[in-house]
Design a protein around this nucleic acid. Structure first.
Length: 433
DNA sequence: TCTGGGGTCCTAGGACCC
DNA sequence: TCTGGGGTCCTAGGACCC
């Protein structure tokens, strides 16, 4: 088997640049929700030494006098751009696995039996994605996924590869591994890297020279798989699970919250979001977990992290059922006297919706049917008219006496530097004068 | 003042059963 | 009342990914 990994270069920054070419060649960073910290950096920003995860408020003092363009994240835009890139990849390979918003593995079959110029194919594909979507992508092609990852990093790093690096011989493999820091290997995280470095293992090649048994003992079966993949043995299976086993929606708050009543709005909203994700993958959940936690950076304040899990009487996926359970969970775990900074809802124990077993403990079949129909209708309305056109009342904050407007949790998240919804909202479409 | 969000897999240890 | 050991299931925590 030969794998091609396609990886968008500096994905979020590249999405922004497609619609704002004046950002080209400049140091650009994209920030997390509430403009909290840096989640994506342009090449120029990386060259300045801006680390990933840097709190935005520290940027000015850490990088004085530098011209850095900071943008709020616009996930609607990134999701749409990603879908465009993926559709081009899908049209170019028989079988693809979308691994994340910015990367996908393409299965290219067995090179031994197919006359195939991987290098030419990859260069052409990268050029086509750039031409048709504006997004720069790098391709790595190799007999295992871990080696394809290595190859894609070379394709990114050295322009001489023309966006595509192929590792298809043992000679190339050994040369690449000798130049590749072990800390950058897919599957070797910060902790493991530190341990390996301490033992004098610096490159991926050093790592492959360890014997298999000691790797397994020290790094468990997962570490051994990485070792085997670097040797060229294809052993990391990626399959789309039929459904996610857990689904989580969580956010930090722009301001800390103190009362249970204040938490009701975000918790209801997170619950409805989880319910929606459940319905999208055609499944139902058996458990609903709520968690609330204080701000770990405020050492001057009392710290607390509380969680409570509710077992549903029967699997559910409607907004009202999930939200009711979540609020019950909030009720059970809430304690006053703390400043809550972050909360979330996790639904777990998912089962396919068509395998639903009725239970005498559950709400009546008539009521269940009503909730199911209502959810399907609200999904349709929200798809046509925009998210949160229709929502459960508990996710709506009471009207502000000054403005007379009710607000949703999502509207309270700060995105003061967000770009327009160029591709998904007709009001934001680019005009050419 | 301001510090992200959403997943998966593996292992160890405890509870429980036979 | 005393005793052993093996299997399974569940959970918490750690590590990793993007």
């Amino acid at each position: 088997m030969l794998y091609a990994l396609a990886d968008c270069d500096n994905c979020f920054v590249s999405c922004e640049r497609v619609f704002n070419p004046s950002l080209e060649g400049k140091a650009v960073v994209v920030l997390s929700n509430n403009d909290g910290c840096v989640v994506a950096r342009s090449q120029e920003a990386k060259a300045l030494g801006i680390p990933e995860g840097l709190p935005f408020y520290q940027m000015a003092e850490r990088f004085p006098g530098k011209e850095i363009h900071a943008l709020s994240s616009n996930y609607t835009l990134y999701g749409d751009m990603s879908a465009r890139v993926m559709s081009l990849l899908r049209a170019s390979a028989p079988d693809i696995f979308v691994y994340s918003i910015d990367e996908a593995f393409m299965m290219l079959g067995d090179s031994k039996y197919i006359a195939f110029d991987a290098k030419a194919w990859g260069e052409e594909l990268a050029a086509k994605v750039r031409r048709w979507t504006g997004m720069p992508v790098s391709l790595g092609i190799a007999p295992t996924k871990t080696l394809a990852k290595v190859a894609s990093k070379f394709a990114k790093r050295y322009p001489g590869y023309h966006k595509c690096c192929v590792i298809d011989t043992d000679d190339k493999r050994l040369k690449a591994l000798a130049l590749f820091p072990v800390a950058d290997v897919w599957g070797i995280g910060r902790r493991t890297a530190a341990r390996l470095e301490a033992a004098g293992i610096h490159t991926a090649l050093d790592f492959t020279r360890l014997d298999a048994e000691s790797v397994r003992r020290a790094l468990t079966i997962t570490g051994l798989r990485t070792w085997q993949e670097l040797h060229g043995q294809d052993c990391i299976a990626l399959e789309h699970l039929p459904r996610k086993q857990t689904i989580c929606t969580s956010r930090s708050f722009p301001k800390m919250l103190t009362t249970k009543a204040e938490l009701t709005v975000p918790i209801s909203s997170f619950a409805a979001c989880c319910a929606h994700k459940l319905r999208q993958q055609h499944s139902m959940a058996q458990y609903v977990t709520v968690f609330i936690s204080t701000n770990p950076f405020r050492e001057d304040l009392g710290q607390q992290s509380l969680t409570h899990t509710i077992a549903l009487p029967a699997p559910a996926s409607s907004d009202p059922e999930i939200a009711a359970a979540a609020l019950k969970g909030l009720d059970a775990c809430f304690r006053s006297g703390f400043q809550w900074k972050r909360a979330g809802v996790i639904v777990s124990g998912t089962v396919p919706e068509d395998e639903l077993q009725t239970s005498f403990l559950d709400i009546s079949p008539e009521q269940k049917m009503k909730f199911t129909k209502m959810s399907a209708l609200s999904d349709k309305i929200n798809q046509r008219h925009g998210d949160e056109s229709l929502m459960i009342a508990s996710a709506l904050r009471p009207k502000d006496p000054e403005t007379g407007k009710g607000t949703t949790f999502r509207n309270s998240i700060l995105h003061t530097r967000r770009s327009p919804f160029y591709t998904t909202d007709i009001r934001d479409i680019i005009e050419v004068m």
